[in-house]
């Protein structure tokens, strides 16, 4: 199909389903990766973290399929890069923020003599 305005090439008819499906899988794999990553780190179960990375591999496949079906070339390549990097880094960044916010609290609670059990396994601190 021709570019409709030189910048945008619409999805082909036969790629409709794959477009919807792969777009949904980008978000679902992103959440699955984040969930497995967080759960694995929380309970010190490295195997779950590795399953999380497997989910991220699924996300990579979904992003590349979506990029192919929706013709994400030229400037649009940056969107592919942003999705791949953003979803990889976000759970790590959020995890560090979680640890940071909770660590401050736990220190204060410990100092006040009312410390609660940390949700983070000692090996992960």
């Amino acid at each position: 199909m021709e570019d409709c305005d030189g910048m945008l090439q619409p999805v082909e008819l036969q790629d409709f389903f794959i477009t919807f499906f792969s777009a949904a899988m980008v978000i679902l794999f992103g959440a699955l990766y984040a969930m497995l990553f967080a759960w694995g780190r929380l309970h010190n179960r490295p195997r779950l973290v590795w399953w999380g990375y497997a989910a991220y591999a699924g996300l990579v496949a979904a992003v590349l399929t979506l990029a192919d079906a929706t013709h994400l070339t030229g400037l649009w390549t940056w969107l592919v890069v942003a999705m791949l990097v953003g979803y990889l880094v976000a759970p790590h960044a959020i995890w560090h923020l979680c640890q940071g916010t909770h660590a401050g609290m736990e220190d204060e609670e410990a100092a006040a003599g009312q410390g609660r059990a940390s949700p983070v396994h000692p090996a992960q601190r």
């Binding site: 992103g30 959440a31 969930m35 967080a38 929380l42 942003a82 999705m83 953003g86 976000a90 979680c98």
Partner: peptide, 16 residues
């Protein structure tokens, strides 16, 4: 494409 990222971030945070 960035709009779902806060929602994914919430997944990590809520699990924590």
């Amino acid at each position: 494409a960035l709009e779902p990222i806060p929602l994914v971030a919430m997944v990590v945070h809520s699990l924590y």
